[in-house]
Design a protein around this nucleic acid. Sequence first.
DNA 1: GATTGCAGTATTGTTCAACAATCCAACGAT
DNA 2: ATCGTTGGATTGTTGAACAATACTGCAATC
Lengths: 235, 235
Amino acid sequence: MTATDDHIDRLPAPALVRPTSQAERVADLLRTFVIDGELAPGVRLSEEKLSRKYQVSRNTLREAFRLLSRERLLVHRMHRGVFVAHPTGEDVRDLFNARRSLELPAVREAGQAPRALVDAVGQAVEEGEAAHAEGDWWRVGSANMHFHEALAALAQSARINEFMRQVLAETRLVFHVMAMPREFHAPYLSWNRRIHLALAAGDTEAAAEELARYLTISERQLTTAFAQMEGPEQA
Amino acid sequence: MTATDDHIDRLPAPALVRPTSQAERVADLLRTFVIDGELAPGVRLSEEKLSRKYQVSRNTLREAFRLLSRERLLVHRMHRGVFVAHPTGEDVRDLFNARRSLELPAVREAGQAPRALVDAVGQAVEEGEAAHAEGDWWRVGSANMHFHEALAALAQSARINEFMRQVLAETRLVFHVMAMPREFHAPYLSWNRRIHLALAAGDTEAAAEELARYLTISERQLTTAFAQMEGPEQA
DNA sequence: GATTGCAGTATTGTTCAACAATCCAACGAT
DNA sequence: ATCGTTGGATTGTTGAACAATACTGCAATC
């Protein structure tokens, strides 16, 4: 170890250059398509067409499919192909149960979390309000996701964070199943603001109760919409 | 719809015959190997050797690898191959934070859960005690996993259940990193028994407190062991 | 008229062989 | 000691081939 090594140790280390494989890149691409709704729920992804379009071999494409099917964004059906996941009313209930398990305790234990994590919640609130001011409804939705992601992050576990991202991505799929009206997200803006205010004030219990109400109402809205949808027509 | 269709509706439906792909079967196989410690943490899985040994093509094998790397049981390192995950002390902290987030709230809300789910917790306790009576330490460990899996299941979310399974599988890997003494699991048997008793009695808060203590102590044991291990020697 | 049986077709499941890209260890030069 | 080079081994990716399966439509049956 020479003296010059000290300089190296001081470098902003974590930005390590990670080489990525073709399969991962394709998976990233498809993931954004699914989350953004460019690939509608239930749509089948033809191996031949996709491999031709994105200039990758079928084998590489299939590796990407495996990654995304473990994330529940794609569904593999033997000899039939892979399809964009198509959540049902049952899935909605499950997703919200999962969110309750993740978000509520995270908020209740927010006292243990570093201030930076609480601030991130506030930033998401502001992002949503800014998007609302610009009338960018899609970004309002994204900001709402960031908000809840920030809530789960209070639990301080990278694994929880990743799981939460998955759950939220799936939740976003739910919105694609039935085109929600643009104004659907509007009421949540003030709600998020209230939750963050309570958090910043250290009143975690109040924040948790607000959040619980939010989740209950949001779930009810979606499940009733699904009931109307799955009842009359077929699955 | 003829009258005979009624009989079909009454069949034990959920046992649907799901055809499985080669890739999934290989993934299942490798998963058990990893969890059971037959493939030690850090070991590299040669594509050529494995494909030859299990008579599958490299491409199929790689599909299985992608599945398992999303489960964090394998780690893909570009141009180097896939390795059995090798958890660090940092991972241990993260895993236990995740478990606290999952298990504690699940126990606290156990009142909402159907009795069958609470009974499942008791069954896991008995499984552990039976295994202990037989001196089958490996099964004691498995039963302990089942116990905590049953706790998380009180949250009533299939997604939570799966996530918990993953977390526990990783936790099991931790035990393979350093061979824990056989008696390591012994004290947990009575602990699990106490937690279940409190649960069955409806005293969820007492159960949660016991569980919290358990997690704290268990985490401390593992992290100190890791500190001794990662400090002197290299990573 | 609805169900069953049977093409034919399209697509996925899987394998194989080849090549490019990269890592790694060993060697040798500075 | 450090660095550049070289060669071998392994992964990354491809394209083509074939088997296995699902789907459609039509004819045959009751």
